[in-house]
């Protein structure tokens, strides 16, 4: 499926269905993230059951500590 991720057009692999799959795919599933899909912020529980579709606009922000 083709989505816009943080402003960039990205082709996601076949096996990806849910938001949580995207987080695993990019290896950030263990980080603390804020995810927005088509302008709506998801709660952490919604990562598991929010299905993605073609042309979705996804923003993923992960928190880091360095400074």
């Amino acid at each position: 499926m083709k989505v816009t991720l943080n402003g960039e057009s990205v082709q996601l692999p076949e096996h990806i269905t849910f938001v949580s799959d995207v987080l695993k795919h990019y290896n950030i599933h263990e980080k603390i993230v804020v995810v927005e899909v088509n302008g709506k912020i998801l709660s952490r529980l919604e990562h598991e059951n929010t299905r993605l579709a073609d042309n979705d606009r996804i923003e993923i922000v992960h928190f880091v500590g360095g400074g």
């Binding site: 960039e8 912020i41 922000v61």
Partner: peptide
């Protein structure tokens, strides 16, 4: 907004987190 960027990967994001 919560702003984040990656200068090497050329990514940028600004998300309204008021609902949190």
């Amino acid at each position: 907004k919560l702003v984040s960027f990656d200068l090497w990967k050329n990514q940028f994001s600004a998300v309204n987190v008021d609902s949190l």
